[in-house]
C-alpha cells in the first residue's frame, strides 16, 4: 500500500463545509478521479483515509492535512492534479507527497490562525491583546454537545500579534446598492500561534477571552483562516528568502516539507 499525505485548503464560501461534509465530498472526488484507494477489510469496507484535526465549520484554511492509502502506486503530483480537478473550486488540493514513517499527526504541534475583526481599530485590538497576554489564565465557556465546558484560552497561545489594521469594506464589492458608497471600516487583524492541546483551544475561544477578560468590543462575525500547521521552530530563518509564516519569531514547519523534494507551492 502506498501512503500519501495531502495538504488541502478550504476557501471562500466552502469554508462552511463541515468536516463530515468534506469527508463525504473527498471520498466521492477520489472515486471520480479514479484514485485506486485501498479499502479496509471487514463487513463494511471503507477507503483508507485518516484526517488530522480539521478546522471548525465556517473557518477557512490553507493548511488542512490528511493521509490516504492507495492499493496501487501513483505519482503524487498526478494524484494532486486529478483530485484538485475532481473537487469543487474552494476545496483545493495544494500538495500531495509520499508519506514518511513518522506519522502525520506527530508533525503537528501548533496551528497558525489569522482572525479578521471588522469594525475593530488596531489600537483597541493591540491594547486588548496586551491585557490578554498579561493574564495567567483566561477561562472561557464553550457550548459542547454535553453542555458547557470551561477552557483556558490563554495557556495554549504561544505567540500573538496585531497586524497593521487594514481598511476593509464591511461587505465585499457588489453587495451595496448601485450608487451607494460603502463606508470603509477599520479591521484589525490578529495573528495567533496556538499549541495543539486537549481540549483544543479554538480561535473563537481566544476572541471570547479578548471580549470577556480583555474588554474588547468584538464584532458579531469574524473571518478566521488557518494559515499553517506544523512543528514549532523558533530558530531564526535560514535565509532572507524563507517565507515560512511566523508570529513573534515562532514559525511552523509544514508537515510535508521534511520529505525530500516535496516543498509545496504557496
Amino acid at each position: 500500500m502506498q501512503r500519501l499525505w495531502v495538504r488541502y485548503a478550504k476557501r471562500g464560501r466552502l469554508r462552511f463545509t463541515s468536516h463530515r461534509d468534506f469527508a463525504r465530498a473527498f471520498e466521492r472526488a477520489l472515486r471520480r478521479a479514479g484514485v485506486p484507494m485501498a479499502y479496509s477489510a471487514g463487513f463494511s469496507p471503507h477507503p483508507k483515509i485518516s484526517y488530522v484535526g480539521a478546522a471548525p465549520t465556517g473557518v477557512a484554511s490553507e493548511a488542512e492535512y490528511l493521509e490516504i492509502g492507495l492499493a496501487e502506486r501513483r505519482d503524487p503530483d498526478e494524484v494532486r492534479r486529478d483530485l484538485d480537478a475532481a473537487l469543487p473550486p474552494g476545496l483545493d488540493v495544494i500538495a500531495v507527497v509520499e508519506a514518511d514513517q513518522r506519522g502525520l499527526a506527530d508533525r503537528v504541534e501548533a496551528s497558525y490562525w489569522r482572525i479578521e475583526l471588522p469594525g475593530v481599530a488596531e489600537t483597541d485590538a493591540r491594547a486588548a491583546l496586551d491585557r490578554f497576554l498579561a493574564l495567567a489564565s483566561a477561562p472561557v465557556e464553550r457550548a459542547t454537545k454535553d453542555g458547557h465546558r470551561t477552557i483556558d484560552a490563554r495557556a495554549a497561545v504561544l505567540a500573538a500579534e496585531v497586524l497593521a489594521a487594514q481598511v476593509r469594506s464591511p461587505a465585499p464589492p457588489g453587495a451595496s446598492q448601485p450608487g451607494e458608497t460603502a463606508p470603509n471600516v477599520p479591521c484589525a487583524i490578529l495573528d495567533l500561534v496556538v499549541r495543539l492541546t486537549t481540549p483544543a483551544v479554538r480561535p473563537d475561544d481566544v476572541v471570547t477571552a479578548l471580549r470577556q477578560a480583555a474588554a474588547l468590543s468584538t464584532p458579531d462575525t469574524t473571518l478566521v483562516t488557518r494559515l499553517a500547521q506544523g512543528r514549532l521552530d523558533d530558530s531564526p530563518p535560514a535565509t532572507d528568502a524563507d517565507e515560512t509564516p511566523a508570529v513573534g519569531g515562532i514559525r511552523l514547519i509544514d508537515p510535508l516539507v521534511a520529505n525530500a523534494g516535496a516543498v509545496p507551492p504557496n
Binding site: 461587505a171 465585499p172 464589492p173 457588489g174 453587495a175 458579531d220
Partner: peptide
C-alpha cells in the same frame, strides 16, 4: 455578500 457574514449564525 449580504448573506455571508450572517451564515455563522
Amino acid at each position: 455578500a449580504r448573506l455571508e457574514p450572517l451564515l455563522p449564525r
